[in-house]
């Protein structure tokens, strides 16, 4: 399975590449829109501020939006936030900055009255609905711990219909979400830093992309 990580100048992609390779993907890191458009599956990373990521992603925006129509896409951390309609990060009071609008919703600052922000560390996942991305991921229940993932972020989007797994940190936010069609998904945590749970999520994405491409080819 060939997977392309979109390299739009945000941070270190090395661990992510290694994580996907562990999941048996053949990984390309690319900043070439034509190559990105031709890929079987895409990963949209992101580190830093939302607004800066939006600016850096501008040359690839159309390619990503078009690909999202029929290609598996995985957003990670700020890359995941970019998939939402809008974010309040870096915008003047009462305004927002537009995201890619692949998943409906707004990204907002985590409430800091009870907890330390940024949310940095290992926290539990509560699986809200079925999706291949969470195959084999243990959900938090009143009786048992869920699987833990590693988070580093100050902004998040509240739990909604698209949420696949939630996480509780002062409020319930979407730790994993996916579109209705299912091929566009993302994680607020860093799967490449989340130990075995993270590697499982990456393997799930690669397996999903394989199935998706097989089914799409057969259907055509």
């Amino acid at each position: 399975m060939q997977v392309t990580i979109i390299d739009y100048g945000v941070g270190n992609l090395r661990s992510l590449q290694r994580g996907l390779e562990r999941a048996d993907a053949t990984v390309t890191v690319s900043d070439d829109p034509a190559e990105i458009a031709a890929s079987d599956a895409l990963v949209l990373p992101g580190v830093g501020a939302f607004g800066e990521c939006v600016r850096n992603l501008a040359p690839f925006r159309d390619v990503v939006v078009e690909a999202a129509a029929d290609t598996p896409v995985l957003g990670i951390c700020v890359g995941f936030q970019l998939m939402f309609t809008e974010s309040t990060e870096g915008a003047p009071e009462g305004e927002t900055i537009d995201g890619l609008d692949l998943i409906p919703g707004r990204v907002e600052r985590l409430p800091s009255d009870e907890v330390k922000v940024p949310h940095m560390g290992w926290n539990e996942l509560t699986v809200e609905r079925d999706h291949p991305i969470v195959d084999g991921v243990a959900s938090k229940t009143p009786q048992a711990d869920g699987d833990y993932a590693y988070f580093v972020h100050s902004y998040g989007s509240s739990v909604a219909d698209h949420t696949v797994a939630a996480c509780d940190y002062g409020f319930d936010f979407a730790a994993i979400a996916a579109t209705e069609r299912g091929n566009v998904m993302g994680t607020q945590f860093h799967p490449e830093k989340s130990g075995d749970t993270g590697l499982r999520v990456l393997r799930n994405f690669v397996a999903f992309a394989e199935d998706w491409n097989d089914t799409t080819v057969t259907a055509e």
Binding site: S15, Y150, E192, K193, S194
Partner: peptide, 8 residues
């Protein structure tokens, strides 16, 4: 080392 650890 970074290639071996999938933790921070």
């Amino acid at each position: 080392v970074a290639d071996e650890v999938f933790i921070p």
